[in-house]
């Protein structure tokens, strides 16, 4: 399993926990628009939870630049790898 997949899996667990009303698919293409609970406040929470889980650090401008989960996973993979 590639690094990206491992990270996506960990992030998926966090998303299921944080956005408990969402039961749609979580993929590299998922965006905040797909998830009703995913607003700007929970976005910050999600980012910090991912930072803690993976031991990575995002800058605020990075947090705002991710267009979908794929961008996020790739940015995290760069730091983990």
């Amino acid at each position: 399993m590639s690094e990206q997949n491992v990270i996506l899996e960990k992030i998926t667990a966090i998303i299921r926990d944080l956005f408990d009303e969402y039961d749609g698919p979580v993929t590299m293409e998922t965006t905040a628009n797909d998830v009703a609970q995913w607003d700007s406040l929970s976005h910050v929470r999600l980012m910090v939870m991912i930072e803690m889980e993976l031991g990575v650090h995002f800058s605020t401008s990075e947090m705002q630049s991710f267009k979908n989960l794929g961008d996020l996973v790739n940015a995290a993979a760069k730091q983990v790898g």
Partner: peptide, 14 residues
Amino acid sequence: YTPLSVAGTRYSMF
């Protein structure tokens, strides 16, 4: 707002 909120969220979660 976002930098302040990120700092506050990080502090409270850590």
